[in-house]
Amino acid sequence: MSTMNMTIFSGVIVDDATLTIQELACACSVETTWVVQRVSDGLLPCENPAPATAETNWRFTSAALIRARRLLSIERTFDANAEVSALVVDLMEEVSALRSQLPKRAAQAAS
């Protein structure tokens, strides 16, 4: 069944308003302890991550949300530990950045 809703929705841009640890955990369907562990291990970037900073003050950007979901996907799909998953995601991000610098034809040949 298709429902056409003519209302035009305007959302909040993540980065203008960064995500709290609770919001990031909800967006990834994980417990906050999953997030805390990966930030503490340096696998997930966040703002205000100093050890003395309360976790409630941590803030996460759009890039962190994409990385968190990729980490989770690799961990769950392959039963990978967090470090291996982070290594895979690092390589994905590197390949993606390099491909974006290539002219289109070269990028198609490389993909």
Partner: peptide, 16 residues
């Protein structure tokens, strides 16, 4: 859903 895409968005950003 009809969604307003504000100008100035970058690839990889999210609208919530």
């Amino acid at each position: 859903l009809n969604v307003n895409i504000p100008k100035g968005l970058k690839a990889g950003q999210h609208i919530r």
